[in-house]
Amino acid sequence: MEYFLQQLINGLTLGAIYGLIAIGYTMVYGIIGMINFAHGEIYMIGAFISIIAFLVIGWAGITWVPLVLALVLLLSMVFTAAYGWTVERIAYRPLRSSPRLAPLISAIGMSIFLQNYVQILQGARVKPIQPVVQGGVKLMERADGFVVQISYLQIVIILLTIALMFGFNQIIQGTSLGRSQRACEQDKTMAGLLGVNVDRTISLTFVMGAALAAVAGFMVTLYYGVIDFYIGFLAGVKAFTAAVLGGIGSLPGAMLGGILIGLIEAFWSAYFTIEYKDVATFTILVLVLIFRPTGLLGRPEIEKV
């Protein structure tokens, strides 16, 4: 029971990170109908910018931890968003009216390019970082000494994710930008006829997705303490799995899918074999694609108009 509880906490933390990345996949798919395979790399870049920001802020002599975290997060979101914007501008916008396969190939190319770009600039070695947030809350202790605890960092990750989800949902449902995004998702021609700058709305969608991926990169940097140029691949594919599981195109679906994938991974590692945790995740992807291609919260393509 105690062991189960601990894995639940770990799984939720991991799931929050996957969910934040998955939202970027699902939003871009919603608005332009393509899988942005470079999104995992955007997350990786977010992690690198976080490490660089930690160093810079360290040199600047700021030591109060909450301020450091807030500044790093902000810097990472801003710069990563700029990457997201640039990727769309260079690799996808010129292909807007091409067949669907073209931007997909362009995305894969962009993904390979960004990996190599970071590898050359930052080196291929693993980058470590000193633990910034330490300690935690002891929830329970079993007779044999096994302690269930939630670390302060896990609390930060989960609360930050909840806050972001809430704020993000407000933007999509309650602002004119969010309305324009939903309109472009349904009918870009009509949105244009009503005065929506469709290109700009698509750009902003990439910017928002990248900013959330940056948050995930920031969290992973703190959580694991090590990153390298290749982390975007696996995390990207898993977050993509999460988006498909939740129903691609659905925002709540992406978050739900992320949490489920995190939990599956945590419990699989705990009760079966940790070596096969990725196999478990991708088995889910295959099963969902076969038996429920619209995902848990996705809607069927056919619509009464």
Binding site: S176, R179, S180, R182, A183, Q186, D187, T189, M190, A191, L193, L194, V196, E303, K304, V305
Partner: peptide, 14 residues
């Protein structure tokens, strides 16, 4: 070309 998955009110807002 109304937006089918938006409410009537949201369509008018658009």
């Amino acid at each position: 070309r109304i937006f089918p998955r938006m409410t009537v009110f949201e369509n008018l807002q658009m």
